[in-house]
Amino acid sequence: MARASSNRRKTVVTVLAWAIGLLIFFPILWTVLTSFKTEAEAVASPPSFINFHWTLENYAEVQSRSDYFRHFLNSVVISLGSTVLGLIIAIPAAWSMAFVPAKRTKDILMWMLSTKMLPPVGVLIPIYLIFRDIGLLDSLLGLIIVLMLINLPIIIWMLFTYFREIPGEILEAARMDGAGLKAELLYVLTPMAVPGIASTLLLNIILAWNEAFWTLNLTAAKAAPLTAFIASYSSPEGLFYAKLSAASTMAIAPILILGWFSQKQLVRGLTFGAVK
């Protein structure tokens, strides 16, 4: 009896959860579907769900009219560049705080976090003017630097929480066995640190890919990543639903896939270890 009722309960929960899940996901699904319609079908009333003439012409047109691929490359360069640069600076910092904690370590960590809380409008004007004067406005390098700096606290914090879980005894054991500093780093610590570094890399690529304050304010035509590229559809081109959908699908697809792999890291990275 109990089994039957728990099965019924499971069915109800499943139906409800799937319905809500599909409802939340629907705008994305609808965008993907619309991207395969012709413009006429995209605004047809009543709208058709799947029985329309599937076409790829919107994708071709988005590419040929506004050079999607160049903006895509800008996004890749900016998000990858800022993340890798951030890791190069953050790994030694997180490393030293995790393995050689000092009295001030906690204060330093908290202070780093506080820089993340600085609202971007508080520094928008100086950054804009400095960039204008030294020629970094609308440049990939400029955005790499800014995005690296705004995400650096998150990178350091994430790495710190991962590194702290590496047991210090392992190091002592390695030293007892006569491992030098180089062997210690290469063969003992690196393999244990790689998963944490990979998770940090993943989450920060996502954050940088979707960053839409600095990318919108500091770029014009040349260095515009996908966030700014899509913003150019705000009007009146946004009324061409099929093309807007094709451009949107191409902008979110890569990161959606990466994102699904990083659910766990997301919690850890964005709550600064406060929720595990």
Binding site: N210, A212, I252, L256, G259, W260
Partner: peptide, 10 residues
């Protein structure tokens, strides 16, 4: 979880 990964402009 999907909407969280959609860039704000999209």
């Amino acid at each position: 979880i999907a909407p969280f990964f959609v860039m704000p402009t999209v």
